[in-house]
Write a protein that binds this DNA or RNA. Structure first.
Length: 110
DNA sequence: AGGGTGACGATCA
DNA sequence: ATGATCGCCACCC
């Protein structure tokens, strides 16, 4: 009995990066969804942090809740252009999530 | 070691 | 729809 570690999970950063990498081209996800997929519900800000500090990730595919771009200034424009070039359609200022949101496979059985 | 910080999210005015 | 506020939580200095 004793103690059991809740979960010896990988480094947070790796878990988050792995989740982000799963989003395919032409699809998008949200900070919150990535956090959940990485086993860190509620850690949306950490997802943003990783995106901010890591290179080599498809950062443009991660949006705020509702498909909204949460970046500011030039970066926001670049994100939109990159997504559009991948075929992602916007509806006003947001991505059409019904059409492009990537659904993560259930980590645990269906 | 501790606390400020932020590419969030949900809610309310 | 926009802006403010509060709760979250690991990372960085």
């Amino acid at each position: 009995m004793a103690l059991r570690k809740p979960k010896a999970r990988l480094n947070l950063r790796q878990a988050i990066e792995a989740a982000i990498q799963q989003v395919p081209r032409g699809k998008v996800s949200t900070y919150g969804a990535i956090a959940r997929a990485a086993g860190l519900p509620g850690a949306a800000r950490q997802v943003a942090g990783v995106l901010h500090r890591s290179f080599g990730l498809p950062w443009q595919r991660i949006l705020g809740a509702g498909g909204e771009i949460k970046l500011r200034g030039d970066s926001a424009i670049e994100q939109r252009l990159r997504l559009e070039s991948e075929g992602v359609i916007f509806r006003g200022r947001r991505v059409d999530m019904k059409r492009h949101e990537y659904k993560f496979p259930r980590a645990k059985s269906r």
